[in-house]
Design a protein around this nucleic acid. Structure first.
Lengths: 255, 255
DNA sequence: CGGTACTTTGAGAATCGTCAAAGATAGTGG
DNA sequence: CCACTATCTTTGACGATTCTCAAAGTACCG
């Protein structure tokens, strides 16, 4: 009733009555865009999806080329960034499972997406998915909610970029990243210690995110260590020693 | 068929067959959220709306209090901002007609909204509107598109906040503001000269937007004047004298 | 063990912020 | 119409933060 417009489906083996094996095994079946779809509707959508994998560092899509595919992140972390004509770069978002990547209803991405870690995504061809979206309100609703969350976090980061000092920015990043990693790990059914995590970003990636230089970021890490708020092993493994102090630095008001 | 859930409508005089007089006269009937609605559906929605006016400077909603109403901007400019516990402030967006203000599906705004100029809005009670939205896909679709535009512009501003110099930021603001004002005036059927406009923001408001101080903003204006890129009359009326040069400063790549 | 890539630290420079004072504008009341 | 005031803007001098450039230190990989 809702998918009249979705015409030239790629035909493929399809089993009825339960999720497609690929969807059954999907890491984000329960929480992603598809969580709003029943088995039959998902069966339909499944026909236009493809699973793709990217190695850390690979580009997923780029600014200039027209969008061919959208995707849902199944595992790994995706970096979204923008770039100025002279090469200055700014990371504008991190995508964790089950985030959606791509710009719905437009044929051009206004940003770059690249794999921060090894990444697995579930892709959909653009045109078909847009049609499908328009005819499947429950799916559009879920995607709308994901988008609202992204807007919330974009605005949170605007406050950070515009008004925080370098030290505060690093504190805010550590807390945000620790929370999001923690959630992502729990979602995968893994054990997770919130105050102890691997920083998957290089200093360069952190500085692109915070609007700082590598050196300034490094100095802030040193300051945080010196103040005994964090400990770092092998430049990558972070221990949060004093979360309340970091919260105050990050402006998380706890009256 | 789509609005079963929308129960306790406020009853009011209603005329059938054409838009309600209030909607007929609405500045944004053709381009706002309601543009996706036919006369009958609009008739329904109209029952829960109220027109409200705010004087320049008045607060429309605030961070802490739970959202009671959503709104569509009919005329004027709305400022959205966030604030750090110690008072540092960052503007995270400007709302022009026909933008939607408020956070759909949540009972808490994570920002402040205030009237930058005198503002007229069309408000809807939160709960009713959320219900209405869920049962009216065309409306949700339109709101989704408005939200995607906001996300695009938030990300554009993240690049600006994180990576541009003070001079570049001011150039980018002037161009953005000139375009948006121009569009808003054309939309109202007014004559509009793109390179000539009234800067409705004070220096303080500009600095909150750009993540700078008043003094720095003022100095950048002086520099732009001195380079003959702009002229300013009465500290408020801007003449763009050299748009290409401003475009380059703002990083608008024109190969 | 040596090479590569990433990180840390230091010194000096540039940008932007802070504090202070003077200039401009708009509104008010005589 | 003209002071008079309040508010906003501009400009200057100085200081703090962050950036740039350079070099040394550390981890990773074959």
């Amino acid at each position: 009733m809702h998918n009249k417009n979705v015409v030239p489906f790629i035909t493929e083996k399809s089993d009825c009555g339960s999720d497609h094996p690929v969807c059954q095994a999907c890491e984000v079946r329960a929480c992603g865009m598809c969580s709003e779809l029943n088995t039959d509707t998902l069966q339909e959508l499944r026909k236009i999806t493809r699973t793709k994998e990217y190695k850390a560092g690979e580009q997923i899509f780029c600014d200039e080329e027209p969008t061919e595919n959208y995707a849902t992140i199944k595992s790994g972390i995706v970096k979204l960034s923008k770039i100025l004509p002279d090469g200055r770069q700014q990371t504008i978002g991190l995508g964790f499972p089950p985030d959606f990547i791509g710009r719905a209803f437009k044929d051009k991405n206004s940003s770059f997406a690249s794999a921060l870690t090894d990444v697995t995504v579930c892709t959909f061809p653009r045109e078909l998915f847009n049609d499908y979206l328009k005819s499947t309100p429950s799916l559009e609703h879920k995607l709308f909610e994901l988008t609202l969350n992204e807007l919330d976090s974009a605005r949170e980061w605007m406050l950070m970029l515009g008004r925080m000092t370098a030290l505060e920015k690093v504190a805010a990043l550590l807390l945000d990243f620790s929370d999001r990693l923690h959630k992502a790990r729990l979602l995968q059914g893994l054990d997770s210690e919130k105050n102890n995590f691997e920083l998957l970003l290089t200093r360069a990636e952190i500085s692109d995110f915070l609007g700082l230089t590598i050196e300034t970021v490094s100095r802030q890490f040193s300051t945080l260590k010196q103040k005994n708020l964090i400990a770092i092993k092998n430049q990558r493994f972070i221990d949060i020693l004093d979360r309340p102090a970091l919260d105050i630095l990050a402006g998380h008001e706890n009256y």
